Simulated assay, not measured.
Amino acid sequence: MRAPRSPQVSTAVLVQRWRTMTFLHWRYPAQVVQRLLPANLTVHTFDGAAWVGLLPFLMEDVRPPRLPAVPWLSRFPETNVRTYVHGPDGAVGLYFFSLDAGRLPAVVAARASLRLPYFWSDLAVEVDGDTVRYRGRRRTPGPDGAGYDLRVRFGQAYRDAELTAFDHFLTARYRLYSQVAGRLVAVDVAHPPWPLRRGNLVDLRQDVVQAAGLPAPAQPPALHASDGVDVRVGFPHLVRART
């Protein structure tokens, strides 16, 4: 099944690369997730359930277009906890419960501009052959100490024909929603389809999902892995309800 088409972002505020990405997703009752969303967003379900993802990865070459990357500032690990939503504009996208980043300036900028729930955290992405270890521990703001330690073995690439609607539901997301000064805004991101690979979860300990206000996952996660994509991030815009 073909992936949904990425939007065009002709004028980008940032360009970046998302590398060594792992997608872990758990099924939750829709009403459990809905109670954590803003009133103007509705949980987007698949197979009758909401899905919550834990996604650790490496950010590289983070910079405004046409400007050079700053080596220390432009490369750092990041991890997000997210779910999938319908917006009042009729579009679908994602909503972040938390984002952990290894660079304090990036945390401060994202919290100030888009009110995204970023946390400054001590993070690491360690690659050993086909096995990747992701580690993280939250610094500030609280809850102090929330974190994770997981290892994933990256496997063979999926052929396009092998990918299902469920695979795309969990990974092909090109819009984020956030509340800024009481108003809903959206940001579009453009990138090629994810080159998805099979993955095997070797080990997992985490409490960042619970720190978002959710119960601990009750089953093993659905897992996807990817070497990554190049990304263009658009300017935020106000979301207007569909009439």
Score class of each variant (00 low, 15 high):
Val185Asn: 11
Ala186Val: 01
Leu73His: 06
Thr171Pro: 03
Gly90Gln: 11
Val233Ser: 10
Val62Gln: 09
Pro195Glu: 14
Phe23Gln: 13
His224Gln: 12
Arg111Pro: 00
Leu104Phe: 08
Phe46Tyr: 11
Ser6Glu: 05
Asn40Gln: 11
Ala109Gly: 09
Asp149Trp: 10
His191Tyr: 10
Asp230Glu: 15
His44Trp: 15
Trp120Ser: 00
Val9Thr: 01
Asp144Met: 13
Leu55Tyr: 10
Gly87Lys: 00
Leu67Ser: 12
Leu163Gly: 11
Pro143Cys: 11
Val81Asp: 04
Leu176Glu: 06
Ala165Pro: 06
Asn40Thr: 14
Gly90Ala: 01
Ala225Ile: 01
His224Asp: 14
Ala157Leu: 00
Glu78Arg: 08
Arg198Met: 05
Arg17Asp: 13
Gly155Pro: 02
Gly142Leu: 10
Pro7Cys: 04
Arg183Asn: 07
Ser74Asn: 07
Ala190Val: 01
Thr79Ala: 08
Leu204Glu: 12
Leu163Val: 00
Val185Arg: 13
Tyr28Gly: 01
Leu150Asn: 10
Gln31Thr: 06
Leu163Arg: 05
Asp207Ser: 08
Pro64Glu: 08
Asn200Ile: 09
Val233His: 03
Leu223His: 14
Val152His: 07
Trp18Val: 00
Tyr134Trp: 06
Phe97Asn: 02
Ala112Thr: 13
Arg242His: 10
Val152Lys: 04
Leu67Trp: 08
Asp149Ser: 10
Arg173Met: 05
Arg35Ser: 01
Gly93Tyr: 03
Val187Ile: 15
Gly228Pro: 02
Ala91Arg: 09
Ala212Phe: 12
Arg75Thr: 10
Gly129Tyr: 08
Leu99Asn: 04
Gly234Ala: 15
Leu223Trp: 09
Pro88Leu: 04
Val92Pro: 02
Trp72Phe: 08
Pro88Met: 00
Asp167Val: 12
Phe166Asn: 01
Asp167Glu: 11
Ala172Ile: 05
Arg66Met: 07
Leu170Ala: 03
Asn200Ser: 15
Leu14Thr: 13
Val81Cys: 04
Ala212Arg: 13
Leu37Trp: 06
Ala50Pro: 03
Thr171Leu: 09
Ala12Lys: 14
Asp89Trp: 07
Thr22Asp: 04
Asp144Glu: 15
Pro64Thr: 12
Gly136Gln: 01
Phe76Gln: 03
Thr171Ser: 09
Pro88Tyr: 03
Pro221Asn: 14
Gln219Phe: 04
Arg138His: 13
Arg240Trp: 11
Leu41Pro: 03
Pro88Phe: 00
Ala146Val: 09
Leu37Ser: 03
Asp130Val: 09
Pro68Thr: 09
Ala49Ser: 15
Gly228Lys: 13
Ser6Met: 05
Arg111His: 03
Val189Trp: 01
Leu201Arg: 04
Glu162Arg: 02
Pro77Thr: 07
Leu94Ser: 00
Leu14Met: 12
Val233Leu: 07
Leu94Pro: 00
Leu24Tyr: 02
Thr11Asn: 11
Pro215Arg: 10
Arg5Met: 07
Pro192Tyr: 02
Val9Leu: 02
Arg205Met: 06
Pro105Arg: 00
Tyr118Asp: 08
Asp128Ala: 08
Asp230Ser: 15
Ala241His: 06
Asp122Leu: 09
Thr79Leu: 06
Val202Ile: 13
Asp100Leu: 02
Glu60Met: 12
Pro71Tyr: 13
Arg137Phe: 00
Val15Cys: 14
Trp194Cys: 02
Val33Arg: 05
Val187Thr: 15
Tyr158Met: 08
Leu24Thr: 03
